[in-house]
Nucleic acid binder design. Structure first.
Lengths: 341, 341
DNA sequence: TGTGTCCTCGTAAACGTTTACGGAAAAACG
DNA sequence: CGTTTTTCCGTAAACGTTTACGAGGACACA
């Protein structure tokens, strides 16, 4: 059914070697012959068998992105990733690479899937997201000598891999600055409970900024929960119990903010009026919520493109294609002022 | 670096044929030998090269899910798909299959990517989502004789493929019934502008139910827009311009509902008080919105599992594993009554 | 004509598996 | 002990590519 390079060769009365060379654009083939091969390939609807090719070449010409649902009830996904993946895929496609997303089961934290991808050589490199403070995946990959790049920083694995992250520290600080400038001094922070690195970075920025303003950090105003609507909903009331109520809340995640605002609404507290609310990572949800939530927006699609570039530059097969080989980059988050603070 | 079956054979002083047979659980190998092979495999951290294996077997042992961002500004993704994919992946993993998600560029409607997957034989079968009324992907796959299954119905390609869909028709009708029972007669419907089949099905149910109640269908109460927050936001005001204002709106999508509620809020109209709102496909957003939105909930994860089963049953290599081979199933949507209607 | 260079192509090996086939040894059977 | 069956394993081909190597012919040059 599927036509192979042999069919093509037979059809043209030339050897498979020549066909292959013609298709792969090598120099040592007559321009005329190449033309005929290309035409025949189109006519016979030929396209090379990926397995045969990658077996011979030792590379799969595809990059794997590890997507994994977090544990927790009703785990819907991260709308977040789609624009990022769009950028990633666009840039990879430019270099003829395919992007495949491998799904993991919720909660297993991908170790198993990752091993599978690496060991069966399904991809030439992987892209990790949601890096943790100490990330065993990174340790595993560096030890295995498998090429990878990360969306997000980590303390694991040295620095010998490309990584791209958002400046959550600065965003946390900026949020505090903004709120302080508007007269707030009781500022709560709500972040994910997992040891996702961006949660730490955010809190660091938050703490430092408070101290800079001479405001004591009150542990009663800091809480963490599942990184979804339910988490925000269940944990927000906790900071409202502080002896001295907060007048502002910074949410480290849009879904948590949604849940948190729900909790506030049930307490009769109106975001943007009775309580200032700022969200660290903007999504369409923030914009269309009522009141529209002030949030920090990342440039997700360009980030995807950039990380693809960085990864490509780190791959021997593609090295030299790009100029600078920056290893780690931290991108700013842009404040979008809306109505909630 | 990576150990091959030859290393294993050399290490054990037996032939590669025996190693392969031992690993693949064939009968004609001594229990003792098999044991030794398995141990050595674990010790040498051997796992078979996927390319070699699939080249020989002619199958990749993986299923592709085609994920594609829709055109439109700020296209964030569908949280929707994650639970579905989780179920799909879980069931496929049970049969030793990998799930890979293939990203397309926004707007190209996947034809190109799909061809690529099929022609390079990257997967043994594909799963399509967001089926259209007439779906060229389905035509292509049936013509190519490539195995596939769809999440969603279509009029294309006959019925010789497994498909699983939600009963949008009934949900549309149920929503109308519920609103009519509560005294509404001016009921608007807002749905995606693309020719996604579920938009049609929903509208069909909506229309039929209205007629059944003796209510004339007013085209001024039906509108469509981009299937995202912006679409809902921009299109909702249109139905408010009808000569006789609606007292209820049914949204065919949660994101559109969010945008629509925003538009209502700006007009001083409060969902659940001044306007009844029902959403057809429930997500956490609906639950945590204020007011919580009455919505119809799908069983996404079981659906993923079920579609995987149906697909497997249709594959020659797995046939007989399952009992019944239902070709098409339509699952109900469960009404979750909340505060918005 | 002899020699060397260049262009183009065919040959064959290799990538890592799986599996049909056959053969040797062991077991079963009379 | 001879014959048949069974058990186990090695051999080698095949899957569809890519690519190193070398050969043949054309051409240039002396």
């Amino acid at each position: 059914m599927a036509s192979s390079i042999h069919d093509l060769a037979r059809h043209l009365n030339i050897s498979i070697g020549t066909v292959s060379r013609a298709l792969n654009g090598r120099a040592d083939v007559n321009a005329d012959t190449r033309q005929r091969v290309l035409e025949a390939a189109k006519k016979l609807n030929y396209s090379p068998n990926q397995s045969g090719r990658s077996l011979r070449r030792g590379s799969t010409h595809s990059i794997a992105f590890m997507l994994q649902p977090h544990p927790g009830d009703q785990q819907y996904g991260e709308p977040f990733f789609i624009p990022f993946l769009t950028g990633l895929q666009a840039r990879l496609a430019e270099s003829g690479l395919d992007l495949i997303v491998v799904m993991g089961a919720p909660g297993d934290y991908q170790q198993e899937r990752l091993r599978r991808v690496v060991e069966t050589r399904r991809a030439d490199a992987v892209v990790l997201a949601w890096t943790r403070r100490e990330d065993e995946r990174i340790d595993y990959l560096t030890e295995a000598g498998f090429p990878f790049a990360t969306l997000g920083r980590s303390r694991s694995g040295g620095t010998a891999y490309p990584s791209l992250d958002l400046d959550f520290e600065k965003a946390g600080a900026d949020a505090v600055d903004r709120l302080v400038a508007r007269g707030h001094r009781r500022i709560a922070a709500i972040r994910p409970s997992l040891d996702l690195n961006f949660g730490y970075l955010f809190l660091d920025g938050y703490r430092k900024a408070l101290r800079r303003h001479g405001i004591e950090v009150d542990p009663g105003l800091i809480a963490d929960g599942f990184i979804n609507e339910a988490g925000g909903y269940s944990v927000t009331p906790r900071v409202m119990l502080a002896k001295d109520r907060p007048t502002a809340i910074i949410f480290n995640n849009d879904a948590m903010a949604l849940g948190g605002c729900k909790a506030l609404a049930e307490m009769g507290i109106r975001p943007g009026k009775d309580m200032a609310v700022i969200v660290i990572v903007d999504t369409p949800l923030c914009r269309y919520f009522s009141p529209a939530l002030t949030a920090f927006r990342p440039a997700l699609e360009p980030m995807g493109q950039r990380l693809a570039e960085m990864l490509l530059a780190s791959l021997p097969a593609f090295a030299g294609e790009e100029g600078p080989r920056t290893i780690r980059e931290v991108w700013p988050l842009e404040l979008i002022a809306r109505e909630s603070d």
